[in-house]
Lab assay of single mutants.
Amino acid sequence: MALNTPQITPTKKITVRAIGEELPRGDYQRCPQCDMLFSLPEINSHQSAYCPRCQAKIRDGRDWSLTRLAAMAFTMLLLMPFAWGEPLLHIWLLGIRIDANVMQGIWQMTKQGDAITGSMVFFCVIGAPLILVTSIAYLWFGNRLGMNLRPVLLMLERLKEWVMLDIYLVGIGVASIKVQDYAHIQAGVGLFSFVALVILTTVTLSHLNVEELWERFYPQRPATRRDEKLRVCLGCHFTGYPDQRGRCPRCHIPLRLRRRHSLQKCWAALLASIVLLLPANLLPISIIYLNGGRQEDTILSGIMSLASSNIAVAGIVFIASILVPFTKVIVMFTLLLSIHFKCQQGLRTRILLLRMVTWIGRWSMLDLFVISLTMSLINRDQILAFTMGPAAFYFGAAVILTILAVEWLDSRLLWDAHESGNARFDD
């Protein structure tokens, strides 16, 4: 018995066209964080690309023209004298008006014999932002004059995390709450300039795509075929072959399989920071003279006294001054041990922890910024005066060393310790 099946006739004509040209192939790229070699397709503007294995951002879609970056830099340069030299806060102490600005706080630190601690604050609040705007201006002028731009481009990517104007702005709020127990506070004209400078700096850093600047100024022929001998440069993120001198053909720094002496430098910085954190938390970090009496505060006791007036601000200072430094030390110690013992479990967790400490590390400088600003506000000789204690130097040095330890660690070593050939990683 035959089955009668109805015929289905399409209502619209289906047209099949042959592909007349070869589909576009992607360029081969190595991930600078996990060293995976993959094919990167062509990316349009405002599109980002991520590593298929570790999800690290390979290409950032946010990109401004150099002219727009230069305009932002010149605007920031105009704001800087007002943000640093004009009063941020006014207080009335014992019937006398006192003005506080950024430069005055750094000068008070240096004047009291601790120039190293003052230079830490100076670099993060004044030096690094000033280098940022002058570097962008150098790129703008240098591109037109045919100057060598490689050193500036190499420095810009590392400079971003040292620009800490946003953290200093939080420190202004913390210092205001600490001082309000002794005097009446009012915002100064410099505060508005400083807030504007923070906003412009944040926007500029978020749109400063150094890798795209490398592509514009020093374009290189990408690798179009897969080759395990391809290496990625950690300076400019170019994937290719080393030249005859073993250097990256684009930025001219040595092109090595792994960062040289990464573990040794990381261990040295980490152990030194552990040693410095002990006096930083045991010795007094601030000293207040009130009517001839002397009151010393460690980091913890200062947080407890701050909690009596504002528990939320005390929580912020606790996280930045105690929780973050010790968390960074514990995480980095764990990561280094996992590399030495070739741990194969929990790779995803370790990668996330490394990215976390990379982002939060700079916030530990908050305590030094609060001390710097408070020193310029309260300084009335023996009637009422505020000065920093010996722990300030140890704390600042420990924070900087932990930042350097994270920067010096080559994250690809975590993958080397893991089993080879993993296309995915999980716990």
Rank of each mutant, 00 (worst) to 15 (best):
1 M>G: 00
4 N>I: 03
5 T>K: 11
6 P>Q: 07
11 T>G: 05
16 V>Y: 08
21 E>A: 06
24 P>G: 06
25 R>E: 10
25 R>Q: 08
26 G>R: 08
26 G>W: 10
28 Y>T: 10
30 R>I: 08
31 C>A: 00
35 D>H: 06
40 L>N: 07
40 L>V: 09
42 E>V: 06
42 E>I: 05
42 E>S: 06
43 I>N: 10
43 I>F: 06
45 S>W: 03
45 S>H: 08
46 H>Y: 10
55 Q>W: 06
57 K>W: 03
58 I>D: 02
69 L>Y: 12
71 A>N: 03
71 A>M: 07
77 L>V: 10
83 A>N: 03
85 G>K: 10
86 E>G: 03
86 E>L: 03
88 L>Y: 02
88 L>Q: 02
89 L>Q: 04
89 L>N: 15
90 H>L: 04
93 L>K: 00
94 L>V: 03
95 G>F: 08
96 I>G: 02
96 I>K: 03
98 I>F: 02
99 D>G: 05
100 A>G: 03
100 A>T: 06
102 V>H: 02
105 G>Y: 01
105 G>V: 01
108 Q>S: 13
108 Q>N: 05
110 T>V: 08
111 K>G: 15
115 A>M: 02
117 T>S: 06
118 G>D: 03
120 M>Q: 06
120 M>G: 06
120 M>F: 12
121 V>N: 10
121 V>P: 03
125 V>C: 09
125 V>T: 07
126 I>M: 04
128 A>L: 02
133 V>P: 09
136 I>H: 07
137 A>Y: 15
142 G>Q: 01
142 G>H: 02
149 L>D: 01
149 L>Y: 03
152 V>R: 00
155 M>F: 03
155 M>L: 07
157 E>K: 15
160 K>W: 04
161 E>H: 10
163 V>L: 15
167 I>F: 03
169 L>E: 02
169 L>I: 11
171 G>Q: 05
173 G>V: 12
175 A>Y: 01
175 A>K: 01
176 S>V: 11
178 K>C: 00
178 K>P: 00
182 Y>Q: 04
184 H>K: 04
185 I>D: 01
187 A>S: 12
189 V>F: 14
193 S>I: 02
193 S>D: 03
196 A>V: 15
197 L>S: 05
198 V>A: 15
202 T>V: 11
202 T>F: 15
203 V>R: 08
205 L>H: 13
210 V>P: 15
211 E>F: 13
216 R>T: 14
217 F>Y: 13
219 P>Y: 11
222 P>V: 15
223 A>Y: 13
224 T>S: 13
224 T>W: 13
225 R>I: 15
230 L>Y: 12
232 V>E: 13
233 C>G: 00
233 C>D: 03
234 L>D: 14
234 L>T: 12
241 Y>V: 13
244 Q>N: 14
246 G>P: 05
247 R>P: 06
248 C>Q: 00
251 C>H: 00
256 R>N: 10
257 L>N: 12
258 R>V: 07
258 R>N: 07
267 W>E: 14
269 A>C: 04
272 A>G: 11
275 V>D: 07
276 L>H: 09
277 L>R: 01
282 L>N: 13
282 L>Q: 12
284 P>W: 08
284 P>Y: 05
287 I>Q: 08
289 Y>S: 02
290 L>D: 00
291 N>H: 13
295 Q>V: 10
296 E>S: 11
297 D>W: 02
301 S>P: 04
307 A>K: 15
307 A>H: 13
310 N>V: 05
312 A>R: 15
313 V>N: 15
313 V>G: 01
317 V>I: 15
317 V>N: 00
323 L>E: 02
327 T>L: 13
327 T>M: 14
327 T>R: 00
327 T>V: 13
328 K>S: 00
328 K>H: 00
329 V>Q: 11
329 V>C: 12
330 I>G: 12
333 F>H: 09
335 L>G: 12
339 I>P: 09
339 I>T: 12
344 Q>Y: 14
344 Q>G: 13
344 Q>K: 12
346 G>D: 10
350 R>L: 09
353 L>P: 07
353 L>M: 14
361 G>M: 00
361 G>R: 01
365 M>Y: 03
367 D>Y: 00
368 L>G: 08
370 V>W: 00
374 T>K: 00
374 T>L: 03
375 M>A: 05
377 L>G: 01
380 R>M: 01
380 R>D: 00
380 R>W: 03
384 L>N: 01
385 A>R: 04
386 F>Y: 01
387 T>H: 06
388 M>K: 04
388 M>F: 04
388 M>A: 06
389 G>P: 01
390 P>S: 09
390 P>I: 06
396 G>M: 02
396 G>N: 03
396 G>L: 02
398 A>V: 10
398 A>L: 04
399 V>W: 02
399 V>M: 06
402 T>Q: 03
405 A>E: 03
406 V>G: 05
407 E>D: 11
407 E>P: 02
411 S>T: 11
417 A>N: 10
417 A>V: 11
418 H>Y: 11
418 H>A: 03
420 S>L: 12
422 N>E: 06
423 A>F: 15
